[in-house]
Amino acid sequence: MSASPEDTHGSTYARTPRTTPTRYKDRATWEQEAIHAVLDDAFVCHLGFVADGAPVVLPTIFARVGSRLYLHGSTGSRPLRGAADEQGLQVCVTVTHVDALVLTKSAFNHSVNFRSVVAHGTAHQVTDPEELDVALAALVDQVVPGRSGEVRPANPKELAATAVIRLELDEVSAKTRSDGANDDPADADLPHWSGIVPVRTVYGTPEPHDATVPLPAHMHRFPR
């Protein structure tokens, strides 16, 4: 949604032990185009890191710009404080879409169809003012494309309370499942229903706070 227009057709990220699954390796890909597509179709990720010796996973909004992820947070949050250090913060960022419930005749074979991305690396806080402007605009546009140009930019007080961390997409892979209900042959004659239930995100009609302001063009993507 907020990606830069770079050509990634045919390009791949390097495989590493952390980005190579131990099960269902055929579902994994390191192709940049496929990975970016999963990321660009989302705006919420889960950020994992270690704080005081214990694992922490937090949901937050993100945006992709080229081969970088920008994650939004408060200047007082733990991951943002950790990423402000010179050495940065070791993180794992995940994005998941659930596309269907997969219901089979046996409990064991139930599953979901999904698209997911897992990225590892060292996150750093964005301090350059120009890069911060790009990141904040991308974060707004990741949620609603074109929105950043239709709102008041953050003022100095708001900027002082906002922090953004950057993660380079160097160690990253995607994994997907898009199969049907794979019943075991031995279960074929069982009288139980099997199949898939598609899962989709559906947006409602925009509800104005100020009815005197007409719906802008970038909001026409939502049903009216």
Rank of each mutant, 00 (worst) to 15 (best):
D128E: 11
L190Y: 12
K105R: 14
A160D: 09
P214C: 08
E158N: 10
N182L: 09
S173M: 05
L159W: 15
P129E: 07
P191Q: 07
P145D: 04
P145F: 06
P208F: 15
R177E: 04
D179M: 01
V140F: 09
D128H: 08
L169W: 01
V98M: 11
E130I: 14
F108Q: 00
E158Q: 15
V102Q: 12
N113R: 14
L190R: 14
K105L: 03
P185Y: 02
A135E: 00
H209E: 15
V202H: 12
V118A: 07
G149F: 10
S178N: 09
D141F: 15
V102A: 10
P185K: 01
N113G: 10
T201F: 14
A211N: 14
L101A: 08
Q125T: 15
P214S: 06
W193A: 11
H110S: 04
D133E: 05
R166K: 14
T104L: 10
K157W: 09
E207S: 14
L169N: 01
P185L: 00
H124E: 05
S194A: 13
L167T: 07
V143E: 06
G180P: 00
D210L: 13
H209P: 08
T104W: 11
D184G: 03
P214D: 06
T127P: 13
T176K: 03
S194F: 06
A163K: 03
P129W: 11
D179Y: 01
G146E: 03
V117P: 02
N155I: 05
V164E: 01
P185D: 02
E158Y: 13
R177V: 03
V134F: 09
P198E: 04
G195Q: 08
S111K: 09
P208K: 14
P206F: 14
D170M: 09
V151D: 09
P216M: 10
G121M: 12
T205M: 14
H110Q: 10
Y203C: 12
P145K: 03
I165R: 07
D133Y: 00
R177Y: 00
L139F: 00
E171T: 01
A123R: 06
R177C: 03
V202I: 14
R147W: 02
A100F: 04
T127G: 11
V140A: 15
G146A: 05
V126H: 00
P153I: 13
E130Q: 13
V140D: 08
L132D: 04
V112Q: 10
S148P: 03
P208W: 15
